[in-house]
Amino acid sequence: MNTGETEGNAVSEIAKAPYLTDGTDFKGALKYYYGVALKRFAKFGVPCAFLWVQMFMWPMEYRGYLLPLAIAGMFGLLFTLFLFYGRMFLTWRCSRVFRAYPLEFRGPVEKVKLERPLRLHLRFGEHADQSLTMLAKDPLGRSRWPEGITNGLWFAGDDPFGGAAIVPGTGELLFMQPSEWALAAEARDNAGEVRIKQAKRAGIKRPVRYR
């Protein structure tokens, strides 16, 4: 199950996105990400659920033989539910940000560190506090640097609070917040009432736990 998902990630990372990635179609990106999350759950979660439930369809005298399959199905279902929740949660977080902030192009982007599992540390090269490093995560769990990210990306948000971004071309969604949340506390406190309220609407006033 893990191998199949990893191969799917690798293919999708080098393919062009099936939606516009020029900062005009964040709804297309969200729809695609929600769809992929649902398809992956259907591909792996539904068969696991069947393995678990099918034991109860047989008479009691046969259930002992089916117990190992049922246990495997139960754990597989729990694992896929965990992945499904994480993907939907971060995609929904990106959705809140896109509806609260306009997308603007930010570049170049400096690659700071690739932290496994599934976390990118990056820094904007222009119009940003150079000491502020962002921790970014793709809701679908891709763990490689998106192709061409150093050229820039479409970002919606406010640096001290974080935001969400779309990578031009490949179209990856990235949810991000300062990697050292406490270091940006002074900038957030001095942001002013308007920016703080906007961050609250976007769901980034407080740190978000990355699953």
Score class of each variant (00 low, 15 high):
P108Y: 00
P108G: 00
P108I: 00
P108H: 01
P108L: 01
V109D: 08
V109S: 09
E110C: 04
E110W: 07
V112L: 09
V112M: 11
V112W: 06
L114S: 11
L114A: 08
L114E: 14
E115M: 13
R116S: 09
R116C: 01
R116L: 08
P117T: 14
L118Y: 14
L120M: 15
H121P: 07
H121D: 13
R123G: 11
G125K: 03
H127L: 06
A128P: 02
D129W: 05
D129G: 05
D129P: 03
D129K: 07
Q130E: 14
L132Q: 10
A136F: 06
A136C: 12
D138F: 02
P139F: 00
P139M: 00
L140F: 01
R142T: 12
R144N: 10
W145E: 03
G148Y: 11
G148N: 11
N151E: 15
F155P: 06
F155A: 12
A156Q: 04
A156T: 02
G157L: 10
G157P: 08
D158H: 08
D158F: 05
D158Y: 08
D159T: 05
D159R: 01
D159M: 07
D159G: 00
P160S: 05
P160C: 02
F161T: 10
F161M: 11
G162H: 13
G162I: 14
G162A: 12
G162Q: 12
G163Q: 06
G163N: 06
G163S: 06
A164E: 01
A164S: 05
A164F: 01
A165M: 12
I166T: 00
V167C: 07
T170H: 13
T170F: 12
T170L: 09
G171D: 05
G171Q: 05
E172S: 09
L173T: 02
L173D: 02
